[in-house]
């Protein structure tokens, strides 16, 4: 049977039935769901996408709940992450891009990737927001990351110092995590903290770096006096 000739509602009904069978660990025919995805994505059929969303939202919600990090995201339901997963899934796979995916398994794996990355992206953003809250003040306009990092590297010629600056300032790892990851360089968290204070002292002595980073005038006065 050529499933591409079937009416949309029939394809959607069979896809829902096959998805239910899969959940009950019975053998399934993937052609209907793949065809539904093809119409939703390659043909950009809005109705087909609505069927896909209706059938796969609960599946996607289960994936989201199982990702480490969801329980600490502060979200009481996975719905927002599911919606974000689907919007990115559609953005990435619509039109001709769908043709890269030869079967249902590959398509679902991509949807799952979108679900996982929605949470991880949220956690990245949450961490950045936490840092801003901890700082307690608004910083002036954007700074060129490349310029700032190049200046830091100029001020820290030693490889270990640059690595530590990267781990602490760019990756925002805690001293204990750094010691755990690089025990051959820093045996304990205290070793990390001591090395870090030495590095920060070098960095904050540099007027150019302070200006680049957008240090407030009050802090500039206090740091300049050190």
């Amino acid at each position: 049977m050529d499933v591409s000739q079937l009416p949309l509602d029939d394809v959607a009904r069979r896809c829902a039935e096959e998805t239910d069978k899969f959940r009950r660990k019975q053998s399934v025919d993937n052609r209907y769901c793949f065809e539904l995805f093809r119409r939703a994505l390659e043909e950009r059929s809005q109705d087909a996408f609505t069927h896909i969303f209706r059938i796969y939202k609960p599946v996607c919600a289960r994936w989201v709940r199982r990702v480490p990090g969801f329980e600490h995201s502060g979200e009481s339901t996975p719905d927002a992450f599911v919606s974000e997963a689907f919007v990115n899934f559609y953005k990435d796979l619509q039109g001709d891009r769908f043709r890269r995916f030869a079967n249902l398994s590959a398509v679902l794996k991509y949807l799952k990737k979108c679900a996982v990355t929605a949470i991880l992206q949220y956690i990245r953003k949450l961490r950045a927001t936490e840092l801003e809250v901890e700082l307690g003040e608004d910083l002036p306009s954007e700074v060129e990351y490349d310029q700032l990092w190049t200046r830091i590297c100029q001020l820290l010629p030693n490889d270990d110092d640059r690595l530590l600056a990267d781990l602490r300032l760019r990756q925002t790892l805690k001293p204990a995590e750094i010691a755990q990851t690089y025990p051959e360089r820093w045996a304990t968290a205290r070793d990390v903290s001591v090395a870090l204070q030495r590095i920060l002292r070098t960095l904050r002595k540099d007027r150019e770096l302070r200006a680049m980073a957008g240090i407030s005038s009050d802090d500039e006065q206090l740091l300049g006096g050190l």
Binding site: K113, C114, Q121, L131, L135, Y145, W149, I152, R168
Partner: peptide
């Protein structure tokens, strides 16, 4: 002055955090 020292480190973190990293989607 002590707070200014703390804020200096935090400012650099805010400026640099995860800059230069691929997006999570690209990692996927």
């Amino acid at each position: 002055r002590l707070k200014a020292l703390q804020r200096f480190e935090r400012t650099l973190q805010v400026r640099l955090a995860r800059q230069g990293c691929p997006s999570v989607s690209t990692l996927g």
